[in-house]
Amino acid sequence: MRVVVDNVEKTFIDSKKREVTALENINFSIEEQEFVVLVGPSGCGKSTLLNIVGGLLSPSKGEVYFEGKEQKNPKLGIVFQEIALLPWRNVYENVIYGLEESGASKQEQKVKGKHYIDMVGLTGFEKAFPKQLSGGMKQRAGIARALAVEPDLLLMDEPFSALDAQTRTIMQEELLTIWDRTRLSTLYVTHNIQEAVYLADRVIVLSRHPGHIKKIIKIELPKMGRDQEKYRSQFERYSQEIWSLIRHDAEEALKEA
C-alpha cells in the first residue's frame, strides 16, 4: 500500500487568538517499502505533520489516505519521541499491547512478542519495567511495540533525540538492520541532518512560516553501509545541501525562542 498526503494544511489558534498556519500545501507520498525522512528546523511543523499522518491530529484541509489493492483497515505503528511505554507494564506486556488490543491469541502474542523482542535486542529484559531500563533500551521496547503490530506504515517521531550521541549512533545502525529485515514503509521525523541522510530513501526538507515542503531529495546511495569511507564525499554533499536549505530557517528559529 502507498500512503498519500494530499494537500494537507493545518492552522492553529494561538494564545493571542490569532490564526497561525503551521502547515501549508503539503503533498507527497510514501511508496511501499520506502523510508521517507522529514527534516526541518524546530517549529517547521514536522511533528504536527507526523501526528496528522498518524491519526492523532486532524488536518484543517486536505487528507491523508492509503492507496492499494486490498480493502482492509491499514495498521499504523508509532514510535514516540517520549517513548510512551506504559510504566505499569513490563517490556513484554508493552510490546504485545497492540496485539492484545487487536484480539490476537495468547499464542500469537507470545510468538510475535518474542520475535520482535529478540529483533531489537531486548532478550532477557522481558520482565523489566520501563523504569528499570536505560533510555536506549526503553526506545528499543518502543520500536518492538510498533513492529509487533506489523504495521502498513511505521511512523517514528524523533525517536532517538532524547538519547546520548553514542547510543544514538548505535540505535541508528540497529534501526537500519531492522528495517532491512522488515522493509516497512516508514515516515521518520528528525532534526538531525546526518541521521536523515544515513537512513532515508528520500528526504523531505520542510521550511518554516508557514511549514511547507522546500525540497524533496532522493538519496542515491545504497541503503546499507552509507557510513563507509567510499561514500563519504557523497554523504557530505547531501548533508551540505540539506543544511544550506535549512540554515537560514534554523537561525531565525533561534532568535524566536
Binding site: G54, L56, F80, E101
Partner: peptide, 13 residues
C-alpha cells in the same frame, strides 16, 4: 500523560 493515551489509541485501544 496524554502521550500514553495517544500511544494506547494508536495501538488499537
Amino acid at each position: 500523560d496524554p502521550i500514553l493515551i495517544k500511544a494506547a489509541v494508536t495501538f488499537g485501544s
